[in-house]
Design a binder for these strands. Sequence first.
DNA 1: GATGAATGAGAATTCATTCAT
DNA 2: CATGAATGAATTCTCATTCAT
Lengths: 199, 199, 199, 199
Amino acid sequence: MPIVVDKERKRSEILEAAMLVFARKGFHRSKMEEVAAAAKIGKGTIYEYFDSKHQLLQALHGYMLSKLKDYYAAELKDIEEPPEIIRRFLAAAVASFREWEPFFYVFCDVWAEAGRAEQQSLLRIQLRDAYRSSIDDLMLVVEAGVAGGFFHCERPRLAAEHILACVDGLALHWLYDQDAFDLDEMTEALTRMVMRSLG
Amino acid sequence: MPIVVDKERKRSEILEAAMLVFARKGFHRSKMEEVAAAAKIGKGTIYEYFDSKHQLLQALHGYMLSKLKDYYAAELKDIEEPPEIIRRFLAAAVASFREWEPFFYVFCDVWAEAGRAEQQSLLRIQLRDAYRSSIDDLMLVVEAGVAGGFFHCERPRLAAEHILACVDGLALHWLYDQDAFDLDEMTEALTRMVMRSLG
Amino acid sequence: MPIVVDKERKRSEILEAAMLVFARKGFHRSKMEEVAAAAKIGKGTIYEYFDSKHQLLQALHGYMLSKLKDYYAAELKDIEEPPEIIRRFLAAAVASFREWEPFFYVFCDVWAEAGRAEQQSLLRIQLRDAYRSSIDDLMLVVEAGVAGGFFHCERPRLAAEHILACVDGLALHWLYDQDAFDLDEMTEALTRMVMRSLG
Amino acid sequence: MPIVVDKERKRSEILEAAMLVFARKGFHRSKMEEVAAAAKIGKGTIYEYFDSKHQLLQALHGYMLSKLKDYYAAELKDIEEPPEIIRRFLAAAVASFREWEPFFYVFCDVWAEAGRAEQQSLLRIQLRDAYRSSIDDLMLVVEAGVAGGFFHCERPRLAAEHILACVDGLALHWLYDQDAFDLDEMTEALTRMVMRSLG
DNA sequence: GATGAATGAGAATTCATTCAT
DNA sequence: CATGAATGAATTCTCATTCAT
């Protein structure tokens, strides 16, 4: 099925282009034409792959989530001990700020968009499910840590939520005041505080 | 004799109207006409008070920041002990999620806008300075707590940043999955973890 | 009747203000508010003296025509000989370019406006009558010159028209390329050619 | 395959439409939508060919100047003797009043606009250069006439300027009082007076 | 009379989307 | 399939005019 492969590749190229354009100018200030130009295709061609600008954002969001998932999977591969998983997760998270900066800008757009969408909108569900699933994953680690005697934690789910909230909040603050932070320091301090908060 | 109008009051009315409209529909999907209707004035009148839609958002952001500041000042009035300040701050923060929900939606718009503005744009500077000043305030509390023997903390500034990041991250997550959280539980768990992370 | 005098004075002040503002920015780009500011009165006050922006232009046009008439009357006072009248008229005309430059800019607006107005519009009639009356005046001079043996001219009316057209045309060209002309030279050459063309 | 369109032709069609609309209603009173309707295209399409309303006027001005140039070139083709060139030029000029009446209305708009534009504005430069170049051309004719013993003229440039000013002034007067003129008579009288003024 | 706050009709311009080629 | 010319709904912002004081 060479054609299918080709389509899939072009789709990804459009998504990568959209990510850069949206990240730089913001979703609403970006034109479909700019995305097309960045993807080196014609404006109309985007519509062969995506239904609308909104759906392009949705697809891009899904694409980013999947990339993030792969990223964390790779970073946490073969690590067994819960405390170490947490440490590596936090380090990977902070490292991703710089490495994947455009992602975070686009996430701002997604937050702004999703917040006003219908409860049942795909974007919103996608966003929510991504959080829920991240929380679930992290909760299992916390639980394993508790079971293994590494952590003290009455509410593993809330602890997981707490950790993810920290990461998102830090990403946000860093985005608007990059000079104020040293990422290495931030990693260290974040790790220390999270580990302490887990007992 | 010209008509005498309390310009400051009308300005606030427009800002309140803008907050509700922007919160519900999002900045870009809101029309100036809708803001005007919500403020019960004519479309053109907004421009007597604000230069442009963008500047209205900026002014609204400033207005919200000032309201938030007053809110925390009132909530933390007369509290002396650092641990208690932190506890009350966290409780007030979580309580504000529900109470001031529209604020948080508008903050999403501000994040999305500010991220793409010039470094020197007023919106961006306003956002950054608000964070910096919040961090400063909180850092002083942490330092006082360390001095008073309540807390252990090597880097009070990073601890303060960490606490604020938690709050913002939780606000964000809560916004998109309100059913998943019990705010009382969240307050309790957040407080516990923050207190622990401060040693 | 002191009140009447006062009203008349303020009316003139508004007209002078309008002239400067219209001359600088053009009729359509000028705001009533700017005219009011230039006249140091409130925006609404203009409407006590003029019905509308269009009527203000019309009144300004009439005001300018009347000023021009006075100017020429003063310049040509007590001159008897037709050739000398012509000479002095041409000199006065060219001198007015610089002296009354704003007039000419406003005339451009009047031409642009009047051209699209109804045949019966006051602005158009005013413009036409001013030309007709100027031509009549000048024609009488030419006729007197012919009768006095100074000029040869089969069609004094057309000659008068010709002379006025020259003056208007020169004003227009001068307006857009002031550096290209030396007004003294222009006066001299214009006079020479007109005198020649009158035989 | 993209749609193939003769962009140059469509551009001209828009310019012709703009000329008629602007001539009838005036630049400022014409809406882009009316121009589009006259060109039988959608409102947005104009912006595929021109950046703004102002630039459309500028382009239209250039288009008109080029048409006029072609017109005179055709009218004066193969004529050698300077007096005959002048005669034919004047006849062509007066004939153009009726034939190309819309042009002259639009010129009024251009005069009004250009007068308030920056010195370096394209419209202004275009206008000035057109005059300069017309004067140059006519000056060469006058000089040739002097050299050939047909004319007496101390300042050929000023004579050329004078002749063009007459033509523009007559056009202007005619525009607002068409009934007062017989164009044939005007041609004859104009020619006579110009020839006399050239000695 | 004078004022300037309020207004809303109006217009330029943008840009997601369509669809003929 | 791909394209980009064409479109017109949508939206910001302007400003002449009104009118309460």
